[in-house]
Design a protein around this nucleic acid. Structure first.
Lengths: 188, 188
DNA sequence: CAACAGATAGACAGATCTGTCTATTTCGCA
DNA sequence: TGCGAAATAGACAGATCTGTCTATCTGTTG
């Protein structure tokens, strides 16, 4: 029951952080929503910041697993997968609880580069970049690193614009741009 | 003295919101930093949210004026200006007080689409898009709206990646991608 | 000079925040 | 069944938050 209590806490915190933000979500709200006692929280985590870090780590796993699975389900060849990325984004943006990228939101609240939470976000982005880069390499891109970074810009740009404008169309605009970039990188 | 007192308050608030975020910046910190009495603030603004809105409006003006002036200083032809955008971003990312886009940060803290602060951010992005679109049209793009949206994704993507990674290189990556997109849009 | 609008300091209310402590209960497991 | 670890409710401290109020002072303008 210990592990599941902790998990439940992280789950609840994750969904509240996603919906309302980090500073705006108080410990008490998380505890009430989760139906967990305060000492249970402070038994598992040293501070709220620790809980935030745990929530981001879980989100990193959860999001990347889901994202990769969706991409690989939709296309079997590397080029198709690079483009499928943007279809998956489209689906993500359509979800009712889409509130932008939790990691970018976290960067917005914890600016300092050296802050542990900011670093977690940078690491998450680096992981995603690694995946795109592997796909780009498998697809035979001339410069896989460069292409992956460019596609990454489109992905992040689409995410923030979809959130700001409340509109999923950036996913499709990004996909069209990606097609152009793939061609230019020698991927047909 | 009235107007300057208000202006000073907005200036101070702007710089603290940019540095520390919105929820993390308390009224008292702003007042202490500005050397202004609390009643002066509540005489000019109905609430903290009002002050945030005023700060964002000022930032919108300030940023767009600066951005457009910088772009037009660097290049005289529309195509050159579309590319100069990314050089200006590079400069922006290099500034010591660069903390990402204040509007995206605000969206991250005020998620609800109907929230006045979120709407201000959407409006700011729409204004920027309008400028890029006019440049794209002047440059003879086949579909200026589409090109402007795609370039917008690169701009926003570069901004968030530069902030997350603490690295200005996304500006240059975005510029390379933009060159490809311009060519594809029939702009040489 | 007189009058008035605006700025000031600072107390204050009431809510909320993180984190600690205690005393009690629940639960798994031997 | 009984032990020990974990979870519980809730009081509590101390800080901080937004916003209000009052009483005083400053500065401009007629």
């Amino acid at each position: 029951m210990t592990a599941s209590r902790r998990d439940h806490l992280v789950d609840t915190a994750l969904s509240l952080f996603n919906r309302d933000g980090f500073h705006a979500t108080g410990i008490d709200k998380i505890l009430a929503e989760a139906g967990v006692a305060k000492m249970t929280l402070y038994n598992h985590f040293r501070s709220k910041e620790d809980l935030i870090a745990a929530a981001l780590r879980r989100r990193d796993e959860e999001l990347r697993d889901w994202f990769v699975a969706e991409v690989e389900r939709r296309a079997k060849d590397p080029r198709g997968r690079l483009l499928a990325i943007f279809d998956v984004l489209d689906d993500w943006f359509s979800e009712p609880d889409f509130e932008g990228c939790l990691f970018l939101n976290a960067c917005g609240e914890y600016h300092t580069q050296t802050h542990p939470i900011h670093r977690l976000c940078a690491e998450h982005k680096a992981e995603v970049h690694g995946y795109v880069r592997r796909l780009a390499k498998a697809a035979g891109a001339e410069k896989p690193g460069r292409l992956a970074k460019q596609l990454g810009l489109l992905m992040e740009g689409a995410t923030v614009m979809a959130h700001a404008a409340g509109d999923t169309s950036p996913a499709r605009q990004a996909k069209r741009a990606a097609e152009v970039l793939l061609k230019a990188a020698g991927i047909s």
